[in-house]
Amino acid sequence: MADPIPEAAIRAIVEAGRRMAERNWVPATAGNISVRLPGGRIAITRSGFHKAHLDSGAVMAVGLDGRPENPALRPSAETGLHCGAYRAFPEVGAVVHGHSIANTVLSRRAGESIGLAGYELLKAFPGLPTHDAAIELPVLDNDQDIARLQAAVEARWARMAAPILPGYLIRGHGVYVWGPDMDAALARLEGLEFMLACEMANLSINPLPGGSAP
């Protein structure tokens, strides 16, 4: 019989869900949240639960391969993307995925990345101690085949210079962000969402040439 999920991990996921829901980043039953557990296990939200109303029954455990410890429970359809981050980066302790208006709209307009420069909140990301910096946030095409989508994510990571930016967008879908613990992952998510909201507001004031404001 599998070990129970630690209460601290459940609490971190439940509180993250409420925090993200308060900001309208996980409408309906969208989004998913996970925490790394000892022994190669992951605690992750189950499919179909609204993130504003999570409790211990909405959290389950899977292995690094995404297989549920309890086959009767169904994890998020995108569990494989969480597992991919945990496998690739041993320092990752938490992964969050949200669907804000800004990240959805901007990812639909973007090419392979969205450039962010000069923002104070760039300091939320590792290796950027000042606002005088620039990043390219990867944007990947959406794909319902999660294994294929994770392979595309890994191919993008292979093209990026170290350290790998701890986040990416899926076009028209949402954002994935991770950190060494839940507090760090949420801080990075909040910083990124603020910058994306600023980018969208700027487009509404200064539409792209030949285009219309979102």
Rank of each mutant, 00 (worst) to 15 (best):
G179C: 05
G172T: 05
R171F: 06
R188V: 05
P138R: 01
A133W: 00
D181W: 14
L149P: 01
I164M: 04
A161L: 06
Y168N: 01
L208M: 14
S212V: 15
P138S: 04
W178A: 13
A158V: 08
S212K: 14
D145A: 12
T130V: 14
L192W: 07
W157Q: 00
I205V: 14
N142D: 09
L169M: 12
N206M: 14
V177S: 03
D141F: 03
A162F: 01
G210F: 02
G210I: 09
V175H: 11
A134V: 11
P163L: 03
A162K: 00
D181Y: 07
A201F: 02
R171G: 04
Y176V: 07
E199W: 05
A201P: 05
I135F: 00
P126R: 11
P180A: 14
G127A: 02
G191P: 03
E193T: 00
A155T: 13
S212F: 15
R148Q: 14
G167T: 12
R188D: 09
L189Q: 11
M195N: 02
L128P: 01
L192G: 06
D141I: 07
L137Q: 00
H173W: 08
L189Y: 15
G191H: 00
H173M: 03
A147S: 09
L169C: 05
G191R: 10
D141G: 12
A155C: 06
S212I: 14
H173D: 10
Y176C: 00
A187R: 14
A133L: 01
D183P: 02
P163E: 02
A134H: 09
A213L: 04
A184P: 02
N142G: 10
L137E: 00
L208Q: 15
A185T: 08
V175Q: 11
A133Y: 04
S212H: 15
A133K: 03
T130P: 01
D145V: 10
D183L: 09
G174A: 00
L186K: 04
M200I: 13
G127N: 02
P129Q: 04
A184L: 15
G167L: 02
L189W: 15
L192H: 12
C198Q: 10
A184N: 06
N142E: 04
N202S: 14
M195P: 05
V153M: 12
F194H: 11
P126T: 11
V175W: 11
P138D: 05
A213C: 07
G174W: 06
P207Q: 09
P207S: 13
R159M: 12
L189S: 12
E199H: 09
D141K: 07
V153G: 09
E199K: 15
L149D: 06
L169S: 07
D143R: 05
G210L: 09
A162G: 00
G127L: 03
V175P: 07
C198L: 12
A152T: 10
I164D: 03
I135Y: 02
A197V: 04
P209Y: 13
G172A: 08
P180I: 14
L137R: 04
A152I: 05
D143Q: 12
H131I: 08
L192N: 10
D145F: 11
W157L: 00
N202G: 13
W178V: 06
E193Q: 07
N142H: 15
H131C: 06
L149G: 03
L189P: 03
H131S: 12
L137N: 08
G179K: 02
E136Q: 09
L186N: 03
R188K: 10
C198V: 15
L137D: 03
V153I: 13
